[in-house]
């Protein structure tokens, strides 16, 4: 990562969660949330890669991602 870059858009994450939950978000939760999001992305990309390879596609494509999205979301359903 470039040194000057933000690690993650902290305020944006907080706004997103706040809007979706209609609740206030306490101090350090957004970090945990972003961690969760990173885990989600990791799982999503891994699944998408597997799917792409099974489908014989060169890289990760929109199709492979879409195909995997539902399952991955279900995994991260509380």
């Amino acid at each position: 990562m470039a040194p000057g870059q933000k690690l993650y858009p902290r305020a944006t994450v907080k706004k997103i969660v706040k809007a979706h939950s209609n609740c206030n978000v306490s101090k350090n939760v957004d970090v945990t949330i972003f961690l969760d999001y990173v885990l989600f992305m990791q799982t999503l990309m891994k699944e998408a890669t597997i799917e792409a390879k099974q489908g014989g596609e060169r890289g990760i494509t929109a199709r492979s991602v879409r195909k995997v999205t539902a399952d991955t979301l279900a995994k991260f359903k509380g």
Binding site: N22, C23, S64, V65, K77
Partner: peptide, 25 residues
């Protein structure tokens, strides 16, 4: 990652945050 794939990933992350917000709420 192709733009289409990125678009799909953005959509997935959108859904993820929506689901996350509901659960946390």
């Amino acid at each position: 990652i192709t733009p289409d794939a990125l678009q799909a990933i953005m959509q997935a992350s959108e859904w993820f945050f929506e689901q996350l917000g509901d659960d946390l709420q």
